[in-house]
Structures are given as structure tokens and as C-alpha cells.
């Protein structure tokens, strides 16, 4: 393997890391970025998505002929979205709506929720990690010669993330629900005065963000572990992306994950995994010193 192919492979890995980070952060960019809820249970909503894949896989193995197995993942994706979305909706209706504008209480309450969800999974599925198998069409890799290999799974994740972000954009900027979401988050009082049922919009928005977390969890079940503490592995990255990108802007999440993904991968190739993480953290801190509201600061008319 020459150094050129090594570098090319690293650029691809950076793109792949970017897509994974973006997938993790997309839901949070809505619940935290757009709504301002510091949701410490974001990782656990991802975990719900991952367990959805596990349950669906088991149902397919048990009740359907073997040649249908490859399709289980396609069914698992919407199921994960709905499961996590419903959980998010419930969470908003019962707890979070009482805590709007109180970030510290929200942080503690959602942290508690994350522990409850972890223990719930531990009681239901056991403390061990569970196995989620990749469907056949996602195993294997595209060979570009000279030792350059592109795993189908990573290509799929890149494509899926691109699709997700496009759909979220269209939802926010091309539909009336999206218009309402943007209106409510920009000026709640005026939206209410104009007849928008803000509480309902809040619940839908939070459910959407949670559902996206579920999707991310479902996909990452093919890359990493699935267990009660799975969510904890991703939560820090998710917040880092949203904060670096700029709270409140989807474009920020894209830019943030691209910056962290490529930097991390390249720095890691010339140092070590631990050092790569340290350097990325240091760079993010330096950047935020320079631009405290991130790469894409939201334009606000009010004085915060």
C-alpha cells in the first residue's frame, strides 16, 4: 500500500466519519439546536433505535423464511424512527414541556431519563450487548484497486445521511409544518397570537428530533455495539458537532461534522487515536474561543 492510497483511504474514512457524526447529530440539531432542549437522553433514544433493529432481526429470523432476512433492515429503519419518535413525543408531553426555558433542570431531568432508559433495557434484554447482523447486501466492499477498498456499509451510510438531511431540509423549508416549527422557535408569542398551536408544534418537533436519533441508532447498530450503554458512546460527539457548527442551524451541523470528521481522521493517521481525539478537542475549544457561537451563528433580532 503506497502513501497515496493510504491518504485516499483516509480521505474516504474522513467522509465516512463525517456522515456518521452528522447522522448522530442531526436529531440533536433539532431538539437542542432548534428547540434549545439540552437532551442528555439523546444517546438513549439512539439506543432505542438500535434495539429496534435487534428486535426486528429476531422477528425475521423466527417467523419468516430465510431468504427474507436481507430485508429486515429496511423494515427496521422506519420502525426505529417511529419507536424513538414516540418515546420522544411521550417525553415531551410528560416532562420536557414543563421545563422549557430552564436548561439546568432539563439537563438533570433528561440525564435521569437516560439512566431510566438504560436500566429498562438492561431489565428487558439483559446487561449484555446483543448481536445485530448486517444484511447480506451491506457486507462486502467496492474494490478500487491498489488496496483501496470502500465498504458497502460505509457507502450506504454516506448515501443515507445525505438523503436524511435532504428530507429534513425539505420538511423544514418546504412544508407548512416546517414553517410552523421555524415560526414557533423564532417567536413563540407571535406565532401563538397568529393561531399556531405552539404546544402541538413543540411535541412534533421533539418527536422528529428523537425519531432521527432512532434512525441513527438503527444504522450504527451495524457498525458498533448494541447494549444498554450504547448511547453513552455517542452523546459527547453529538453535542460537540452541534456546538461547533452553531446552535440553531442545520448547515452548522453539516459543517461541524465535516470539520470534526475530516480533522479527526487526518490527525489520527499521523498520531494515535487518543492523540487525534485530544487534538480535535483542543482545536474545537480554540475555535469556540474565537467564535463562541460556532461556525454558523444563528441570526437573532432579540438581545439575549
Amino acid at each position: 500500500m503506497t502513501s497515496t492510497t493510504f491518504l485516499l483511504a483516509q480521505l474516504f474514512n474522513g467522509l465516512s466519519t463525517t456522515s456518521i457524526l452528522l447522522l448522530i447529530a442531526l436529531g440533536l440539531a433539532i431538539t437542542f439546536g432548534v428547540m434549545g432542549v439540552i437532551n442528555m437522553a439523546h444517546g438513549e433514544l439512539m439506543m432505542l433505535g438500535a434495539y429496534s433493529a435487534y428486535v426486528l432481526q429476531n422477528i425475521f429470523v423466527k417467523y419468516l423464511p430465510e431468504h427474507y432476512f436481507g430485508y429486515y433492515f429496511l423494515v427496521a429503519l422506519p420502525v426505529a424512527f417511529v419507536t424513538a419518535g414516540l418515546a420522544g413525543w411521550l417525553l415531551e408531553r410528560t416532562l420536557i414541556r414543563r421545563l422549557y426555558g430552564r436548561p439546568l433542570e432539563t439537563l438533570l431531568a433528561t440525564w435521569g431519563i437516560s439512566l431510566i432508559l438504560q436500566q429498562l433495557m438492561r431489565q428487558t434484554f439483559g446487561a449484555n450487548n446483543v448481536e445485530v447482523r448486517s444484511p447480506g447486501w451491506l457486507t462486502g466492499q467496492l474494490s478500487a484497486g491498489a488496496g483501496l477498498e470502500f465498504p458497502y456499509l460505509r457507502l450506504f451510510i454516506i448515501a443515507f445521511t445525505a438523503l436524511s438531511i435532504t428530507l429534513v431540509y425539505m420538511l423544514l423549508f418546504r412544508t407548512s409544518l416546517g414553517l410552523k416549527i421555524r415560526a414557533v422557535t423564532q417567536n413563540r408569542a407571535m406565532s401563538a397570537a397568529l393561531g399556531i398551536r405552539t404546544r402541538k408544534v413543540d411535541a412534533y418537533t421533539f418527536a422528529l428530533g428523537s425519531g432521527l436519533a432512532g434512525l441513527a441508532g438503527c444504522i450504527l447498530s451495524l457498525m458498533g455495539s448494541v447494549g444498554p450503554t450504547t448511547g453513552q458512546n455517542y452523546i459527547v460527539d453529538a453535542f460537540m458537532v452541534v456546538v461547533l457548527g452553531g446552535v440553531g442551524k442545520l448547515a452548522g451541523a453539516i459543517a461541524g461534522s465535516f470539520a470534526i470528521g475530516e480533522f479527526n481522521t487526518l490527525l489520527e493517521s499521523f498520531s494515535t487515536a487518543t492523540m487525534g481525539k485530544v487534538l480535535v478537542f483542543a482545536l474545537v475549544i480554540l475555535f469556540l474561543q474565537w467564535k463562541p457561537s460556532g461556525m454558523f451563528p444563528p441570526k437573532v433580532r432579540s438581545l439575549d
Binding site: 500500500m1 483516509q10 474514512n13 450504527l220 453513552q232 481522521t265 494515535t272 487515536a273 487518543t274
Partner: peptide, 22 residues
């Protein structure tokens, strides 16, 4: 020789390094 933090989830770079080191 390489060490990754506990809970590390992204191994693409490590795998690439292994491939290069043969």
C-alpha cells in the same frame, strides 16, 4: 502499536493503519 480510548467506536483509521503495516 496503537491505543484507542475506552468506548472508541470509529476504527476506520486504525484498520487502515493495520492494512498499511501488513
Amino acid at each position: 502499536e496503537e491505543y484507542t480510548p475506552l468506548g472508541h467506536m470509529e476504527y476506520s483509521t486504525v484498520v487502515n493503519k493495520i492494512r498499511a503495516a501488513k
